[in-house]
């Protein structure tokens, strides 16, 4: 599902974020991307969503070379990838339901269908009853569940999470992780970037270690 070969990313200011990275993530796999802050976790995720182009190497998503995509093709790639951020990135002037409906609106579904599917994913994350609330009225954990609902609204093939529990307390963190496992069980490949090793240990899933922009333990064919 995700294939990276010899990927190097050097930012305009000369910082080498990734160096000669090769890694595969299979369809329906659950993987943790771990490493200290500044190791290159976020950069690796940004390469997958085409927010940043690789300086060198190949990034392939579901068989498509991301580096070769034209600018106007990028949105269609992103519709197949759900993304969850540490700071939730919800739109506070919209209700919970409207936030979750946003990707469905962009897709151009009929309003009734948008509503039906948004309510469906809100039920999956256990927040259907808060659909009319504004994000600011919710707790941190609830906001992250809304963000997850938005990320899976289009039933993506891949779900990326960048430090999704960084702002949450341990109980809530565990709840969110169970949610990711549930989503993964529905067939979505899930990649979670985190430096919370306690969570990683408990989850019993594949771990991709990233250290100073390199993946020393990854071996790919």
């Amino acid at each position: 599902m995700i294939k990276m070969r010899g990927v190097t990313k050097i930012y305009d200011n000369g910082v080498v974020a990734l160096h000669d990275v090769s890694v595969d993530v299979a369809k329906g796999e659950l993987a943790f991307l771990t490493g200290p802050s500044g190791a290159g976790k976020s950069t690796l995720l940004k390469l997958i969503t085409a927010e940043e182009p690789p300086t060198e190497g190949l990034v392939e998503i579901a068989g498509h070379d991301v580096g070769a995509l034209r600018r106007r093709e990028v949105p269609y790639l992103r519709r197949r990838i759900g993304v969850v951020f540490q700071d939730f990135r919800l739109l506070n002037e919209r209700t919970v339901l409207e936030n979750v409906m946003l990707p469905l609106t962009i897709l151009g579904l009929a309003p009734a269908e948008q509503r039906r599917r948004a309510l469906q994913v809100l039920t999956v994350v256990g927040l259907a009853q808060r659909k009319d609330a504004r994000p600011m009225e919710l707790s941190g954990g609830e906001q992250q569940r809304v963000a997850i609902a938005r990320a899976i609204a289009l039933d993506p093939a891949i779900l990326l999470a960048d430090e999704p529990t960084g702002n949450l307390d341990p109980d809530i963190t565990w709840h969110i992780m169970k949610l990711f496992r549930l989503i993964n069980a529905r067939g979505t490949a899930v990649v979670i970037a985190t430096h919370n090793y306690d969570v990683v240990k408990k989850m019993d899933a594949r771990v991709i270690k990233i250290i100073r922009g390199e993946l020393p333990e990854e071996a790919v064919a």
Binding site: R72, L107, R150
Partner: peptide
């Protein structure tokens, strides 16, 4: 700009 960023992340075209 945050709204624009979110829209682009969830697959909105320019």
């Amino acid at each position: 700009r945050d709204t624009i960023e979110v829209m682009k992340i969830v697959g909105a075209t320019d």
